[in-house]
């Protein structure tokens, strides 16, 4: 759209007085619920928008499009931007890679990777990437303060707090590079994840190996938490001031769904957690033995 047309539209909009913005999504959800409208029969395009799959967590990073201007590859002539209206929105990228992003997350990516040396995209918010294998053309996800360089993998980026981001590598291998210091990087193998924190910027990145637990044995509460953390791709978080009893042991059937495990923990431990304020994830405030 040219500038003149945009200015004309703005002029028209400016003449509309006393306009009341309403939440049309909420209105539609209430309407559909009240009139029992099955919203599952979507057209192919809307299916892509709302297709819901697996993991991921908290959301939220407002972003501005101008940010992309200098962030994205200078060679990029045209790119798409997409803001997710729902959790777990799947976007198929031009190379066949799939990005699953959370509500309000934004993804910027070129219309084509054909004339570019790298598949460079920008993410604001949380997302999981299933990357098409193209070793000759590295896949780079740019985030706040780091880049994730990929050759062919599935990985997940979750903002844990304003200052802390978790990068979990589910399959393949990724390299997480500090944007301020390219020598500061960590390579993540399958199942590994790291926290990247602005506050611990100088101290680098801590690599935590995955924990695998045997269902038939008792395990320390903390091991169980670690196991859940590693396998829930960001759905479980410890509150900054959480109290965790690392010594107490308990037996939990870890083959259950996350919801069932949380209920089990509720019965067998003195756990305090919140789901409501966490956008479909769990924040644990206390995890202690009973009594």
């Amino acid at each position: 759209m040219d500038n003149k047309r945009l200015e004309d539209l703005l002029k028209i909009a400016s003449k509309v007085e006393a306009y009341k913005p309403l939440d049309s999504s909420k209105a539609f959800n209430d309407f559909a619920k009240m009139h029992r409208i099955d919203v599952s029969q979507k057209s192919p395009s809307s299916n892509i928008r709302s297709l819901i799959i697996r993991w991921s967590a908290v959301a939220a990073c407002l972003c501005m499009l101008f940010y992309v201007g200098h962030k994205m590859d200078n060679n990029l002539n045209s790119f798409n931007s997409f803001t997710a209206n729902d959790n777990n929105t799947v976007i198929e990228l031009p190379d066949g890679s799939k990005a699953t992003i959370e509500k309000d997350a934004k993804l910027f990516y070129p219309e084509s990777f054909a004339n570019l040396d790298t598949r460079h995209i920008l993410l604001e918010g949380n997302g999981t990437f299933d990357v098409a294998h193209m070793p000759e053309k590295p896949f780079v996800v740019e985030y706040d303060d780091f880049n994730v360089n990929v050759l062919g993998t599935i990985f997940n980026v979750t903002k844990v707090s304003d200052e802390k981001t978790k990068i979990a590598n589910i399959e393949g291998k990724v390299k997480v590079v500090d944007k301020q210091d390219e020598n500061n990087y960590r390579v993540l193998n399958e199942g590994e994840f790291i926290f990247f924190s602005k506050k611990s910027f100088d101290t680098g990145i801590e690599v935590i190996p995955p924990v695998s637990l045997d269902n038939t044995r008792n395990h320390s509460i903390y091991s169980i938490y670690e196991h859940l953390y590693n396998n829930s791709a960001g759905k479980i978080h410890l509150h900054n001031n959480a109290i965790v009893d690392g010594k107490a042991v308990v037996r939990i059937d870890l083959s259950q769904s996350l919801e069932e495990i949380m209920r089990d923990l509720d019965k067998k431990t003195n756990i305090l957690y919140d789901k409501e304020d966490c956008n479909n994830c769990y924040i644990i405030y206390q995890l202690k033995a009973k009594g």
Binding site: V16, P21, A27, F28, I37, V39, Q41, S43, S45
Partner: peptide, 19 residues
């Protein structure tokens, strides 16, 4: 043609039409 079309129509026009 389907509920997806309806949802889109609703969300596009609900607020301006109410106004």
């Amino acid at each position: 043609n389907n509920s997806g079309d309806f949802e889109r129509l609703f969300k596009d026009y609900y607020t301006p039409m109410c106004n």
